[in-house]
Design a protein around this nucleic acid. Structure first.
Length: 383
DNA sequence: AACAAGGGTTTAG
DNA sequence: TCATCTAAACCCTTGTT
């Protein structure tokens, strides 16, 4: 066998990542925001300023505003900046902007995968005739088109797979374009700290530090046995492959697998009014299911406790449903069971409560992943 | 041994 | 009171076939 990559041919993948997306959307519709620190907030409604920062523009980031920090902390950091602007997140608007841009991006290849509201992959293998030079020109054209259409800048990465394309896009931001060819992978990845590898967060970084693995290069050379012991039989070997720049995952639209809504309660509670708190969540989920012609077979609840621990309960139904009333009934039972006092056991108090549905099914498609039976019309009608 | 269901953790944006 | 919201992947345990 002379060929080393029998079957799998070399690919050219492009990743596009819209820069500081929510904040940039606001700059576009309110141009006088440009140059000022702009902070996009998710207000929880507990107090006037309670909540967290969703994202911030680069003016604010340079001053130390990071996503996830409390709004109060951001206000403190920016207290001397009289021009700082705090805006509530307007998801509907950002979604409408995203929709237009994503339709432009998807026109670059039939193989398109949107991974979030502001990020997508396209497979340019055919469109570029296998040439990274041509792929780069396509990337430049895409950036121009997005800017002309919506006045938004983005960062583009091009590489032989999704992992490298994504990390290339992250390499120069904002408004960047980075091309990493197969021969560049080792020099690109090796010196980076492990934390920079997509999929490694603070917890894994800490564990790797314990194994004396600090750089992606070191991770790529690490003992597979050790990695398996530490991270499990799937994740261990996968980490090593990713560190070597190996990623065969295809660019492919994926079916949605779960829907959820969660809210912060005005006050911590051991019990609360389902009608006022949970019904709107169920209605919303029901509407989203109906929009997509989906029904769920599993209904669950999510509780974030006062100590910020996550709890969940879920149950599988006999028949799928998309009805708000049934979702509400089911999760109300689960909430009651969860909060029932069992003498010796300390009751937990909730800070946030939510509803999640999964095991989604449509009349047309088989349920995602599972080799389960397809659902029939009667499953939907006689609920 | 293989698989489903339920619950927890980690990551990303 | 500092601590949002949505979605996916993986891990482990338990129970069934």
């Amino acid at each position: 066998m002379l060929s080393t990559n029998s079957g799998a041919r070399d690919r050219i993948i492009l990743c596009v990542d819209l820069d500081y997306f929510y904040a940039q959307c606001e700059e576009v519709r309110h141009p006088d925001l440009k140059g000022k620190p702009v902070v996009i907030c998710v207000y929880s409604g507990r107090t006037e300023t309670s909540g967290a920062v969703s994202t911030a523009n680069y003016v604010a980031r340079r001053l130390g505003i990071k996503s996830g920090i409390p709004i109060v902390s951001a206000k403190k950091i920016l207290k001397d900046k009289s021009d700082a602007v705090f805006l509530p997140m307007d998801r509907e608007y950002y979604e409408s902007v995203s929709e237009r841009i994503m339709s432009t991006v998807s026109s670059y290849s039939a193989d398109f995968e949107q991974v979030s509201i502001d990020e997508a992959f396209v497979d340019l293998t055919n469109g570029s005739e296998g040439s990274f030079e041509k792929a780069k020109i396509l990337g430049q054209k895409l950036k121009v088109k997005i800017y002309e259409g919506d006045k938004l800048t983005c960062s583009v990465g091009i590489g032989p797979n999704k992992l490298i394309a994504k990390m290339a896009a992250d390499f120069k931001k904002p408004d960047g374009l980075t091309v990493i060819q197969p021969s560049d992978i080792k020099n690109f990845l090796s010196p980076m700290p492990v934390r920079q590898l997509y999929g490694i967060g603070p917890k894994m970084e800490r564990q790797l530090k314990g194994l004396r693995i600090l750089t992606i290069g070191e991770l790529g050379l690490a003992s597979e046995l050790k990695l398996t012991e530490t991270f499990g039989k799937n994740l261990g070997p996968e980490l090593k492959r990713l560190a070597q720049g190996i990623d065969e995952s295809p660019v492919k639209e994926r079916e949605i697998e779960q829907l959820s809504r969660i809210i912060t309660l005005k006050k911590n509670a051991e019990t609360f009014d389902f009608q006022t708190e949970v019904e709107p969540l169920c209605d919303d989920i029901s509407n989203r299911l109906k929009e997509r012609s989906l029904a769920c077979k599993n209904i669950g609840i999510i509780i974030i406790t006062t100590e910020l621990r996550t709890r969940s309960r879920s149950r599988t139904l006999n028949a799928p449903t998309d009805e708000s009333k049934i979702i509400l009934e089911e999760c109300s039972k689960e909430f009651r069971e969860f909060f029932e006092t069992e003498d010796s056991i300390k009751k937990e108090t909730a800070r946030r409560v939510g509803v999640r549905v999964s095991n989604l099914a449509s009349r047309n498609r088989a349920p995602g992943g599972a080799s389960e039976s397809n659902y029939t019309l009667s499953d939907f009608t006689n609920v």
